[in-house]
Amino acid sequence: MTTAVAGELTDETVLSKLRDVVAKRPDYVYSPPEHMKDEIGSCFYAHTDDEDGFLVSAGCAVGVVLAELGVPLEKLAAQESIPAYRVLGVLAPRLSKRAKDVLNDMQTYQDTGLPWGQAYAQATGVTI
């Protein structure tokens, strides 16, 4: 895993990581763990285990991208129920509007039930 401080996240690193994440699982359709489905929202940046609520993994596409770039799960979890565009403004403030739009659009298409590859294609105009 690459470790980065949020202020160091650039368009190039984040968009490249998004492509890598999607390329590994283009057919993946995001769904939160069963024990989290009762909570507010349908998408979670970080997932907890079902026994004691400890953070165990990144969740949605934006969560996975940011976690793989070194953003701690605790910081992701603190942003739950906040739209991806705003989360990116907090956790990756150097990103351009274009990069935030791509990630936000990816998240939006993911949340409609599209597999990651299709969501990425809709958000970027590029297929993987």
Rank of each mutant, 00 (worst) to 15 (best):
L73S: 00
E39V: 02
Y45G: 09
Q79L: 07
S96M: 04
E51H: 14
Y85C: 08
V62M: 10
G89H: 10
F54S: 15
H47Q: 09
S96K: 06
P72R: 08
P33I: 00
P93N: 06
S42R: 12
E51A: 13
L66S: 06
C60P: 12
A46F: 02
A84T: 12
I82S: 08
D101V: 06
E39A: 10
T48A: 01
S42C: 14
C60E: 08
L95W: 13
E68M: 03
I40Y: 09
Q79G: 09
H35W: 11
P83T: 14
A77K: 11
H35A: 02
G59Q: 06
G89Y: 11
L95I: 11
A92M: 02
A92P: 01
P83R: 15
M36C: 06
A92V: 02
Y45K: 11
L55S: 06
A92Y: 10
H47W: 15
A61C: 14
H47E: 09
A67T: 01
F54A: 15
R94V: 09
V64K: 13
R98Y: 15
S96R: 04
I40T: 12
A78S: 11
R86E: 11
K100V: 13
R98T: 15
E68S: 07
D38V: 10
L73Y: 08
S81V: 15
L73F: 02
V56S: 06
D49C: 10
D50N: 13
P33H: 04
A77N: 11
D52W: 02
V62H: 04
E51L: 14
D50I: 01
A99D: 07
E74C: 09
L55R: 05
A67S: 09
C60F: 00
G59A: 01
G59W: 09
S57I: 04
L55H: 04
V64M: 15
Q79W: 08
C43L: 07
L95D: 08
V62F: 05
A46K: 03
E39N: 11
L95P: 06
E51P: 05
P72C: 03
A99F: 10
G59T: 00
D38L: 10
S57C: 02
V62P: 12
G59M: 04
